[in-house]
């Protein structure tokens, strides 16, 4: 459940943005969840609802997450697979490089004024 501490950090960042822009509330927040970030989008949603629930500035707000697909490139022949195969279907290699991002990025927020 490290998603809970990540969402706590997110809310801090969002609070700062709300204050900075003199907004009344936040209506939408969009995150990109790297496929190798070790973060579960569903747990992020759960933590967001838990932490935003009793905060009027986040009432009725929604968290949108987007996870771009991860790719596995065979280290020997460069063949690309969407899921990590046991062995490379082209050359039989067993070592794969992971591509697609480890980061968790706050992309966009939508703020509302009265």
């Amino acid at each position: 459940m490290h998603e809970l501490s990540l969402v706590a950090a997110l809310i801090e960042q969002l609070d700062a943005l709300i204050n900075q822009h003199g907004a009344a509330r936040l209506s939408r927040v969009r995150l990109t969840v790297g496929p190798f970030s070790g973060v579960c989008a569903e747990s992020l949603q759960f933590a967001y609802r838990a932490l935003a629930a009793d905060n009027p500035r986040y009432a009725d707000s929604c968290l949108e997450t987007e996870t771009p697909p991860g790719r596995f490139l065979c280290a020997a022949c460069g063949h690309e697979s969407e899921h990590r195969p046991e062995t490379c279907p082209r050359c039989g290699g067993t070592i794969f490089d992971r591509h697609g991002g480890r980061d968790l990025i706050l992309q966009q927020v939508e703020l509302e004024e009265e």
Binding site: I105, L106, Q107, E112, E114
Partner: peptide, 17 residues
């Protein structure tokens, strides 16, 4: 009608850590 501001942030949530 509410006034809505859309901000593009593009900041890592791991950046503080």
């Amino acid at each position: 009608r509410k006034s809505v501001t859309v901000l593009t942030v593009e900041a890592s949530l791991f950046s503080a850590n």
